[in-house]
C-alpha cells in the first residue's frame, strides 16, 4: 500500500522576533494516518497548525494539500479545500446549543445560507444527530455550548470540525484541560469516530501515553526542525528524544 501524501510542507520557516519557531521544516502527512507531533513547549507545534490552516503566513516555504499550494490562502478557503481544525481551547458559539453549533457548521459547509428556512429544519439535521452519537454527546444536544464542562466542549469542538467532512483534521492537544481520568475515554471515542469517517488526523500532544496508544506515527518538532519521525515505539525509545522532549 503506497499511501497518498495529503499534506506536504517544505522548507517552512517562521520566526517571531528572536524566537525561531520553524527553520526549514519538511513534513508529510499521509492519507489515513494518525500523526502525532511532539516537542518541547514553545517549539512551534501550534505554529505549524496555524500555517497549515492559513492563519499565519510562513516567511519561507510552502504547504501543499493534495498537490495544490495553499500557503497564501485564508483559513476559510483552506477549510473549503478539506482541512478542518479543532482548537486547544474549544472555539464554539457559546450562545448556541450544541446541535446548533453543528448545524451552523453544516450550513457553512454546504453553503446553505438560505434566509427562508430555519436552521433547525436543515436537511443535514439527522446527519448531525448521528455525528453527536458518534462523538457520544447526543445527551447534551440541546444544551448551550457555554454551559458545558471543558471535556464535553472539546468533543463538541471536534464534532464541529467533523461536520465539515474534512479529508484532514488538525487537532491541538485534544485532551488538554480534561481530567486525566477522562482522557482515555475521550480519545477512544474520538479515534473511533475518526476511523469511522476515514479522516486523516494530525494532533499536537504533550502526553506520551496518548501518543503511544493512539498515534500511527510521531514527528518530533524541536529547535525549528523535525528531528525525527517514525512509529511511536521507535521514536519514544530514542535517547535524544527522551532527554530533550520527554525530559527523562
Amino acid at each position: 500500500m503506497s499511501a497518498t501524501v495529503l499534506l506536504e510542507a517544505r522548507g517552512l520557516a517562521i520566526r517571531f522576533g528572536g524566537v525561531i519557531a520553524a527553520d526549514g521544516v519538511d513534513l508529510d502527512v499521509l492519507e489515513g494516518e494518525k500523526l502525532a507531533i511532539i516537542g518541547p513547549n514553545g517549539a512551534g507545534k501550534t505554529t505549524f497548525l496555524n500555517i497549515a490552516t492559513g492563519y499565519l503566513k510562513p516567511q519561507a516555504g510552502t504547504v501543499r494539500f493534495l498537490g495544490r499550494e495553499i500557503t497564501a490562502h485564508r483559513p476559510r478557503d483552506i477549510t473549503r479545500f478539506g482541512i478542518a481544525r479543532a482548537f486547544q481551547i474549544p472555539q464554539l458559539f457559546l450562545d448556541h446549543t450544541v446541535i446548533e453549533n453543528l448545524l451552523i457548521a453544516a450550513a457553512g459547509h454546504s453553503g446553505r445560507t438560505t434566509l427562508m428556512r430555519s436552521l433547525h429544519d436543515l436537511p443535514e439535521r439527522s446527519e448531525m444527530e448521528n455525528l453527536l452519537d458518534l462523538v457520544s454527546i447526543r445527551d447534551v444536544a440541546d444544551r448551550r455550548a457555554g454551559e458545558l464542562p471543558e471535556g464535553k466542549r472539546k468533543l463538541v469542538d471536534i464534532a464541529v470540525a467533523l461536520a465539515l467532512k474534512p479529508r484532514l483534521l488538525l487537532m491541538d492537544e485534544p485532551t488538554s484541560g480534561v481530567a486525566s481520568s477522562e482522557k482515555f475515554a475521550i480519545m477512544d471515542i474520538l479515534v473511533a469516530a475518526l476511523d469511522k469517517q476515514r479522516v486523516t488526523s494530525v494532533f499536537v500532544e504533550h502526553d506520551m501515553d496518548m501518543v503511544t496508544r493512539y498515534a500511527d506515527r510521531v514527528a518530533v518538532w524541536s529547535a525549528g526542525k523535525i528531528q525525527m519521525s517514525g512509529p511511536p515505539a521507535e521514536v519514544l525509545a530514542d535517547p535524544v528524544v527522551r532527554e530533550q522532549v520527554i525530559g527523562i
Binding site: R76, D77, T79, Q91, I104, G108, H109, T113, L164
Partner: peptide, 8 residues
Amino acid sequence: TRLEYLGV
C-alpha cells in the same frame, strides 16, 4: 474565528 474556520 470559528466561523471563518467553517469556511464562512
